[in-house]
């Protein structure tokens, strides 16, 4: 049965909230403003943290895809779907913050910066993951197909990044903000926000997996309910 006692979650949520408070403090008060770009550079901390969460999610999706294909255990499929969903949400945030950060610095909403392009293509791949998930009825077939999609998507990342970098090598190489060496307080701010987002990722993944498992349980119960009355009736006659 699904453990519906929620005791671990509040503890996790409070600890994540604390980490977030520390991160906000570190980013806004502890870390100095960056000389060249000024305040706007502070977007970078959470921008990179979102990217970390997205990367963690897609790695989990790939690993659970391989695990499903090997073990054929549907719990891996549930974990994979939860991970991809979180990954998609945070990739959207990465793109949003990337553009909002790029606009003032390079006065263009979108630059074909290799990392941003990779995030964009990743966004399409894992959006396609959900389109595929909606197109297949049988659970085991859907799980196998989605596992392959998650693996293919993850395997594609290095190639996308490599080709985006090669693609750009024609354009003049723009000085990249994070290339600037980080003053120690900046580094601590970055590390704290990375930790906060990693904790957040843990909470979201746990919750999403429980929700998907609950939905599956409901489907099974409904299925049994549809059959139950028929058998009950026959037994009586």
């Amino acid at each position: 049965m699904i453990p519906r006692t929620r005791n671990p979650e509040p503890v996790l949520i409070t600890c994540t909230a604390l980490l977030f408070a520390a991160a906000v403090y570190a980013v806004f008060f502890h870390a100095p403003a960056e000389r060249v770009m000024g305040l706007v550079q502070k977007i970078f901390y959470f921008h990179l943290s979102c990217a970390l969460v997205a990367f963690l999610s897609f790695t989990t999706a790939c690993i659970s895809g391989v695990a499903y294909l090997v073990s054929r255990d549907l719990k891996w499929d549930v974990l994979g779907a939860a991970a991809v969903e979180i990954g998609l949400v945070f990739t959207t945030l990465v793109l949003a913050t990337g553009m909002l950060w790029g606009r003032p610095v390079w006065n263009a909403w979108w630059t074909w910066d290799p990392r941003l392009t990779t995030s964009l293509i990743l966004w399409f791949i894992f959006a396609a993951y959900f389109i595929l998930r909606a197109a297949v009825e049988k659970r085991q077939q859907r799980a196998a197909y989605c596992a392959v999609m998650a693996i293919a998507g993850f395997v594609d990342v290095p190639i996308v990044f490599l080709s985006a970098r090669l693609w750009r090598s024609i354009h003049p190489v723009v000085i990249r903000a994070d290339g600037v060496n980080m003053a120690p307080p900046m580094l601590t701010a970055l590390l704290v926000s990375l930790a906060a987002f990693a904790a957040l990722w843990g909470v979201l993944l746990r919750r999403r997996v429980r929700i998907l498992a609950m939905a599956e349980q409901i489907r099974i119960l409904e299925h049994r309910l549809d059959r139950e009355p028929a058998q009950a009736r026959r037994a009586r006659y």
Binding site: V40, H47, T97, L100, L200
Partner: peptide, 19 residues
């Protein structure tokens, strides 16, 4: 400085997304 506008917008986007 208009760049703080983008800073605020970015943080709003992140908070909105997460919450």
């Amino acid at each position: 400085m208009n760049s703080t506008f983008f800073l605020i917008a970015a943080y709003l986007a992140i908070w909105a997304g997460i919450f």
